[in-house]
């Protein structure tokens, strides 16, 4: 399973020159606009991660114009970068089959032990209800206790649960991700669907890693893949529950390889535009590309009083124009009634 995944990663990186690692953007955050934060990974052609690149090795451009890097955190520095995650866990009735829930609990334990120190994790469990099992915490022991106490029952409200996770993360700073696991098709979501989730997570710049457990047809693997890829994350299929530990470890490793870079845009007006961003590493050809949408359909930009006055004067003049014309002697006054025409009475 991991071998396949690595092979796919290697293939994806193949077109670039063998020496240059590829910048892969996994999230953009504009909530602190005019500061824009980007999280990305640096992947070598063989699929391994570069973790010690330095700030001065990157060039960032917004819409083709270079911008100055304001903040930079590499995975390997003197201090580890804490990460904020929401685990979305399936506790529907079908998770009792083949002790899937047991495999999931073991995988979560292994995952938590591999996260960078200081990471904050919250857990949402879903069946017929979407339940916040734990708010954001750094106390992984109590988190494990909560997860171990889970009992499988109920239907599958996968999309609602992921939607809740996105909303929990929307105001969190730093490196962020959702890890969402399900073993069946969404049956019961009331508020969210695939399209709304993709829109929300793209708007918030949040990657949603999806894990499908069991038969690929039953879990609607295409939808899970679409959700993950649309949010710059990845979809991981697992046939059996005992593969989960390896997958969760791989995700932990990937999250632990994420860079965080922020810049202050030189277009600080929220103007409702999609701004392409490019991150190049060491003049490499394989620059990471992304884009961030800055809301602002009506742009709050002032300083055009002369234009306001000119337009208002023009409009007022246009308003007076027909009145002047009707007063000019060329057109006869309508009130005079000087030329009554012959009237034919009808009826």
């Amino acid at each position: 399973m991991i071998a396949t995944t690595l092979a796919i990663l290697a293939l994806a990186a193949a077109p670039d020159s063998p020496a240059s690692p590829e910048v892969r953007v996994s999230g953009v955050r504009e909530q602190d606009f005019p500061r824009i934060a980007i999280q990305f990974e640096l992947v070598r052609p063989d699929g391994s991660h570069v973790r010690d690149a330095r700030r001065e090795e990157f060039q960032v451009e917004e819409e083709g114009r270079p911008v100055a890097i304001d903040d930079f955190q590499a995975p390997v520095t003197t201090e580890q970068i804490p990460t904020t995650l929401v685990l979305v866990l399936d506790r529907s009735g079908s998770m009792m089959n083949e002790d899937r829930i047991g495999g999931l609990k073991r995988a979560v334990s292994a995952f938590l032990s591999r996260l960078p120190a200081g990471s904050r994790v919250a857990v949402i469990a879903f069946g017929s209800e979407v339940e916040e099992l734990s708010p954001f915490t750094t106390d992984f022991e109590s988190l494990e206790d909560q997860v171990h106490a889970l009992r499988a029952r109920g239907a599958t409200r996968f999309y609602d649960a992921v939607d809740r996770a996105l909303r929990m993360l929307q105001d969190e700073p730093g490196r962020r991700a959702v890890l969402a696991l399900t073993d069946g098709e969404d049956t019961d979501s009331q508020d969210a669907n695939l399209d709304s989730l993709i829109a929300t997570s793209r708007r918030l710049g949040l990657p949603v890693y999806t894990l499908g457990l069991g038969n690929e047809r039953r879990i609607r693997a295409d939808d899970l893949r679409q959700l993950a890829e649309a949010t710059r994350a990845r979809y991981f299929p697992a046939r059996r529950a005992d593969e989960l530990t390896a997958i969760y470890e791989q995700i932990a490793e990937r999250i632990g390889s994420t860079y965080l870079l922020a810049y202050r845009t030189d277009r600080p007006v929220p103007d409702g535009t999609l701004r392409p961003i490019q991150i190049a590493y060491r003049q490499g050809v394989s620059a990471g590309k992304t884009a961030v949408f800055i809301p602002g359909m009506v742009v709050p930009v002032g300083g055009w009083s002369p234009i306001f006055l000119a337009l208002a004067a023009t409009l007022a003049a246009l308003g007076l124009l027909p009145r002047r014309r009707s007063r000019s002697p060329a057109s006869p006054s309508p009130c005079s009634g000087s030329t009554p025409e012959k009237v034919t009475l009808s009826g």
Binding site: A199, R203, G272, T273, L274, A291, F293, P295, G296, M297, V298
Partner: peptide
């Protein structure tokens, strides 16, 4: 209309159509 338009331009991600559609909602 303007709040709904902001959602529309966010979904379309700006551009000519995005701006036009959002202003239409306004």
């Amino acid at each position: 209309g303007l709040v709904a338009g902001e959602l529309v331009i966010g979904i379309v991600q700006g551009g000519l159509i995005g701006r036009a559609a959002s202003w239409a909602v306004l």
